[in-house]
Design a protein around this nucleic acid. Structure first.
Length: 555
DNA sequence: TGCGATATAAACAGGT
DNA sequence: CACCTGTTTATATCGC
């Protein structure tokens, strides 16, 4: 039975092609989606190893417990990897990430780790000591496995009451408490998930269940190593990004050292806190809005919502809040959304608009919109109950959607003017950021936001609409809500350069510069990207380039 | 706390 | 009658 659980554990090795399904299925909290590949055939590690180990060690019951703990820790690691990926702090490259993790955290490593943690030279020692390894004797630990900074004397309960320096997590956590290990009414300790009604109960639980004992210490160390591995992985990915950008002539004038890639490095440091979100009210670093994040955020952070479905409804409008351009997001995560039963982090209106604008003639029938939804999102394939109604509701409700009688019957188009007016434009984040970003538009300097934007820009390379550097500053100040195409329009709205458009078509956008209030959620890194990419040869055939024509003109 | 945006649910009407 | 399409209303949640 032990072997079964071992293989079951390690089966989480992402061996499926895109790593999506397994991710999803895991993030579903055991939802067991059919999408989860059964690709347990990789077996680079452990089942065999563990089996071998077991045979060698004759498998006393205590050893089994120990092995189980190893496996459990491995599970925890992977769970944390997934969590971090969900939080967008890790590139969604499950294979690479997991592989690297596995390389570092294969059972033998874990055993080594365990030895280091416990000061136990072998698992036989562990056997002698029983499953309660005496971690108080770990004075000689943290040799090579752990950075000094993260070594043992890091107080396991450094956050005794959840106050102080603990960064805020998402708003839900703010509501439910401020302890980073407490949220949604449950303990966030790796693998715990104990329900706690309130903070007091949680503190009690924390002190009782996660006291300074062997297990907690080991888990903490495992977490440290997870973080370390993630940072390594992050550095690699950042380096790759750097190279890509360099190759694409995107490099800013002052290249950063690879080990400090854009803002990703700072994000990496956040991993240590397992921060899920930036403090509310502070400008969200655009890197955090990198495409892979949003789906994860939803599948994870909002899973608390008591929704009958496996994936709950997402009230939070991440695309808005995090300024995720829907086009780049979709471009980036197309396969993810197609395969993962994860609700896309966009509003219905955004999705409908995108669907319509994606159509060759910028118009779709209701049924075609349905089809687009089901084609693009597994979520809508599997959760058919309500969303169609919601789509219809949105079409009717929002003035930006215009019904047009066509030869085909009734089709729906998008009134871009109305869409832009849809919400009172305002800047999410501090006005200071706006100023900084604006001032940062000087082509020479690269402030943090700019660099962060570059990070996301790598995701948005697909967007050829950003070839117009001169419009970028305007673009900064007047952007669409969550869609690249709207950005295009604004770019084009700058009368100075609109090769394909007549200016009057966009006259309604022209004055944005005089209206700081038009600055909208801002941090659209895409705009920033425009500065960097102005010399970048971009394909001009993208539909976004021609997404110029508000279709209400068809009327 | 109020408000706006959004999601969800439902009722209803008209057309096919 | 069933279904689709479209409108409208009500309610709840969330973020500001």
């Amino acid at each position: 039975m032990m072997v079964e659980s071992a293989s079951e554990t390690i089966r989480t090795t992402p061996s499926n092609q895109n790593g999506v399904s397994s991710l999803t299925s895991q993030s579903d909290g055991g939802g067991g989606r059919e999408g989860g590949s059964n690709g347990d055939t990789n077996g680079e590690i452990s089942p065999v190893e563990l089996l071998h180990l077991q045979q060698q060690q004759q498998l006393g019951s205590k050893q089994l417990a120990f092995q189980q703990q190893l496996i459990q820790m491995q599970q925890l690691q992977q769970q944390h990897i997934l969590n971090l990926q969900r939080q967008g702090l890790v590139p969604m490259q499950p294979t690479a990430t997991m592989q690297s993790l596995q390389q570092a955290m294969c059972p033998s490593d874990l055993q080594q780790l365990w030895k280091e943690v416990s000061g136990v030279p072998s698992s036989e020692e562990a056997l002698k000591q029983g499953e309660g390894l005496d971690l108080s004797t770990n004075s000689s630990n943290s040799t090579s496995a752990f950075p000094k900074a993260a070594s043992a004397h890091m107080p396991l309960h450094s956050l005794p009451n959840g106050q102080g320096h603990t960064p805020k997590r998402d708003s839900h956590e703010e509501h439910s408490g401020s302890h980073p290990l407490y949220g949604h009414g449950e303990c966030k300790w790796p693998g715990c998930e104990a329900l706690c009604e309130d903070m007091g109960q949680f503190i009690k639980h924390l002190n009782n269940e996660h006291a300074l004992d062997d297990r907690s210490t080991a888990q903490c160390r495992v977490q440290m190593q997870v973080v370390q591995q993630l940072e390594i992985q992050l550095a690699k990915e950042s380096e790759r990004l750097q190279a890509m950008m360099t190759h694409l002539h995107m490099r800013p004038s002052e290249p950063k050292p690879f080990n400090q890639p854009l803002n990703l490095a700072s994000s990496a440091s956040l991993l240590k806190r397992e921060s899920e979100a930036y403090p509310e009210g502070l400008p969200h670093p655009p890197t955090s809005a990198a495409a892979p994040i949003t789906p994860i955020l939803h599948s994870h952070s909002h899973s608390h919502s008591h929704h009958p479905h496996g994936v709950g409804p997402i009230r939070r409008r991440n695309s808005d809040k995090f300024c995720t351009p829907i086009a780049s997001e979709l471009a980036q995560n197309c396969e993810f959304y197609k395969n993962a039963d994860v609700r896309p982090p966009f509003t219905y209106a955004s999705l409908i608009r995108h669907a319509i604008l994606e159509a060759p003639d910028r118009q779709l029938t209701l049924n075609e919109i349905y089809n687009w939804f089901t084609r693009m999102f597994a979520y809508f394939r599997r959760n058919t109950a309500t969303w169609k109604n919601a789509v219809r509701h949105n079409l009717s409700l929002h003035k930006c959607f215009v019904r047009v009688e066509n030869v085909k019957g009734a089709v729906w188009t998008v009134d871009e003017v109305e869409y832009q007016k849809r919400r009172p434009p305002k800047m999410t984040g501090s006005p200071t950021l706006v100023k900084n970003m604006i001032s940062g538009l000087g082509f020479g300097s690269l402030n943090a936001s700019y660099q962060a934007a570059l990070a996301e820009s790598s995701l948005s390379l697909l967007n050829p609409s950003l070839v117009n550097p001169s419009a970028a500053s305007l673009n900064m100040l007047h952007v669409g809500h969550d869609d690249v195409s709207s950005t295009v329009e604004q770019v084009n709205s700058n009368s100075s350069c609109s090769p394909t458009l007549s200016p009057q078509q966009y006259s309604h956008h022209v004055h944005v510069k005089e209206e700081p209030t038009e600055i909208e959620e801002d941090c659209r890194p895409i705009s920033l990207l425009a500065h960097v990419t102005h010399s970048l040869p971009m394909p001009s055939d993208d539909r976004d380039m021609e997404e110029d024509l508000p279709t209400e003109d068809l009327e």
